[in-house]
Nucleic acid binder design. Structure first.
Lengths: 181, 181
DNA sequence: AAGGACATGTAACACGTTACATGATTTT
DNA sequence: AAAATCATGTAACGTGTTACATGTCCTT
């Protein structure tokens, strides 16, 4: 469960409840998970079992009880060790490429429409990402200039990916128009 | 199970056994799945249940029995319908970005090493992709010039992705060197 | 009156991976 | 003698998603 490290990251910023984590994860560009309850709450319980976090129960008047989690010394050490561990290669899954690979069964206009649909889909993703980016600015820790820079770079990575994808799709469509229609 | 369409694609090229599919899938750039037995054999059984493929048993002397699957008329129709269906957005999961987002806990040289590790990892992926590309050329259907073009475009998409990623990592490292060390 | 925010958790399901199981033939 | 190729299948496990379950308070 890699999401545990994402959780540790946010908790190392400041103590939070599962509910807080959910909100923060869904509105952050530096986190892939949809922030579903199942993963968050079970991961928190497991992190506590492993002694990487501890929880305090906060009673509130007129609102439900909150379980606020804080990273332990051991948790900080484990998180730092993970930070230093060799990064994995990114996982890219583009089902559209499977469609395109067999696209020779389509005629020129069908293929063209498929590419336009893809361009639109990428455009939508870009817009959504920009939305998340806006909301994400509020939760960017930005404790130092360097930390702010790193978070910006993360967002730029994602925007760059979609822009790259868009250019590729456009070029593909144009070349198909020119040479195969 | 989206892998069913990838399987239908290959079978629509030519009839194959599960074993053939496995080989072809692992050595093709236009297919993401690792080609593990569980998915392939169970998908084939399900495709047959749905009437999209049928199988013939081929007895061979001195070699195990082969179950060769062929796409039915219904299978071709279903596949074409899927080809025309609106493409999904690509799914990108880069755990390294989670590491980088919290990288302000590291000092300049640790962060630098992390980025170099990532660049190396991307370099390795690029090399592996080029290997797959070489082997993949043999299984490219390339029944028409356009089909060959489409398969090349699929491979180029992936190479482009890694190159884009590499440039981003390099730029990040250089800017960190310049401004935050 | 309805819907959303606050808050924690569980159940069911989908997908993907590795590893296991079997067994003959061929190559190193 | 060991390992790879051919060939089909199953089991166990990890991870991620949606949906369900419960209940109060506040806003529209």
């Amino acid at each position: 469960m890699d999401i545990k490290y994402a959780i540790l990251g946010f908790l190392s910023w400041k103590p939070m409840s599962g509910y807080d984590l959910k909100k923060v994860m869904t509105s952050s560009t530096s986190c892939y998970w949809t922030g579903n309850n199942n993963q968050i709450y079970t991961s928190l319980i497991q992190l506590q079992k492993e002694g990487l976090v501890f929880s305090e129960i906060q009673n509130q008047e007129k609102l439900p009880v909150r379980k606020v989690y804080t990273v332990t010394e051991k948790g900080f050490e484990g998180f730092r060790a993970w930070l230093l561990s060799p990064p994995e290669a990114p996982v890219l899954r583009n089902f559209f490429l499977v469609q395109l690979a067999w696209g020779d069964r389509l005629d020129a206009s069908e293929l063209r429409n498929l590419l336009i649909s893809y361009e639109n889909e990428i455009g939508t993703q870009l817009m959504m990402l920009n939305e998340t980016k806006k909301r994400g600015l509020l939760i960017n820790p930005a404790r130092t200039a360097r930390e702010k820079y790193l978070w910006d770079r993360v967002t730029e990575n994602q925007i760059g990916f979609y822009e790259n994808e868009f250019r590729w799709a456009q070029k593909t469509r144009e070349e198909l128009d020119k040479s195969y229609s």
